[in-house]
């Protein structure tokens, strides 16, 4: 009897597996926030330049995702949420992820510089470096504040979009950055509360593992309180207006209420209802960010008709 299975080839990657290396779900958020940054900037940008800028910002984000998957393949294999990613599942070799990440990093930065300006390209290069080196290689495995500082990488895209249009950094760009930066910790800590086994199995020092779950609940509340004035304060700048102010007041009130409920629960209560509150706050936090940027976009879209802004 011949064992024909021994001669079968290992699983070979399709095009979709390489697309998965770029973290398309993260890219969609990057595209949206960078597009808002570009569209609300007080200068007109040619549609082709705008399309190219958005594509290369997204490509840069994808490149940093591929570099993250190359570096984190060992812990991705341990975590249930990430075990099916292309590198830990064996579809793509780690070296290929590294090569793709490096090549796309170079292409995206140079092309963004040529399409818009070199300050935007420099910010994109810094973002890729920050996510791949500062967050993935250094902070993620060494400090429970990994999410807090690493959140800066996800906060840069609207600022890059703004700079691609205007050529300089202004208060509005900094506030859009601060909105995502302050939103990231409560968003991920809510996730960490109900994904409890994953991070401890992988040895990632999430706050839930190092400081305990009670402390994480307190941190979520504190960061949500710090986030609210940033989000509401943006209403009184060039990107804000009555629509944004109304949205920010409602969304932050809701988020604060959710954080307060998380803070007031203990593990026994949370276990009893399968972390229903934590899961609902996590889901809400996604809408929170989307609706804030949607309101900023609405203000800019209505401005030509005398409706947006103050």
């Amino acid at each position: 009897m011949s064992d024909i299975h021994a001669y079968e080839q290992p699983e070979e990657a399709g095009f979709g597996d390489y697309v998965q290396l770029l973290k398309p779900r993260v890219m969609s958020l990057v595209v949206f926030t960078a597009l808002v940054g570009l569209l609300v900037a007080p200068v007109s940008v040619h549609p082709v330049v705008m399309l190219a800028s958005i594509l290369f910002i997204a490509l840069g984000a994808g490149a940093s995702g591929a570099l993250n998957m190359w570096w984190d393949a060992d812990i991705d294999a341990v975590m249930r949420r990430t075990a099916k990613r292309p590198v830990p599942s064996g579809k793509v070799a780690a070296g290929e992820a590294l090569g793709l990440g490096m090549a796309l990093s170079g292409i995206s930065v140079v092309m963004l510089g040529l399409a818009s300006n070199w300050l935007a390209a420099g910010l994109l290069a810094f973002t890729i470096f920050f996510y791949a080196v500062v967050y993935s290689m250094w902070l993620k495995r060494s400090t429970p504040q990994n999410i807090v500082i690493g959140g800066a990488a996800g906060a840069f895209p609207p600022m890059i979009g703004w700079v691609a249009a205007t050529g300089h950094i202004s208060l509005e760009a900094v506030l859009m950055f601060a909105l995502i930066f302050m939103w990231t910790p409560p968003h991920f800590w809510a996730l960490a509360l109900f994904m409890k086994e994953d991070y401890s199995n992988a040895g990632v020092p999430m706050l839930t593992v190092t400081h305990g779950r009670k402390s994480t609940r307190k941190h979520i509340l504190v960061y949500t309180i710090l986030l609210a004035p940033v989000a509401v304060g943006a209403a009184f700048t060039g990107i804000g207006g009555p629509i944004y102010l109304a949205a920010a007041l409602a969304l932050n009130g809701w988020f604060l209420w959710g954080a307060w409920r998380i803070f007031n629960r203990d593990e026994a209560v949370a276990e009893a209802d399968s972390y229903a509150v934590e899961k609902s706050v996590f889901r809400f936090s996604l809408y929170y960010l989307f609706l804030h940027f949607g309101a900023i976009l609405a203000e800019a879209a209505l401005r030509p008709y005398g409706l947006g802004g103050w």
Binding site: E12, A13, F15, V19, L55, A115
Partner: peptide, 23 residues
């Protein structure tokens, strides 16, 4: 799988060329 990969790379490069030309 190989065909999907080749097609994907081909279309991506084609789109990239068009974008650079338009730019």
């Amino acid at each position: 799988r190989r065909f999907s990969r080749n097609l994907g790379v081909g279309l991506t490069l084609g789109a990239f060329i068009l974008l650079v030309f338009a730019l």
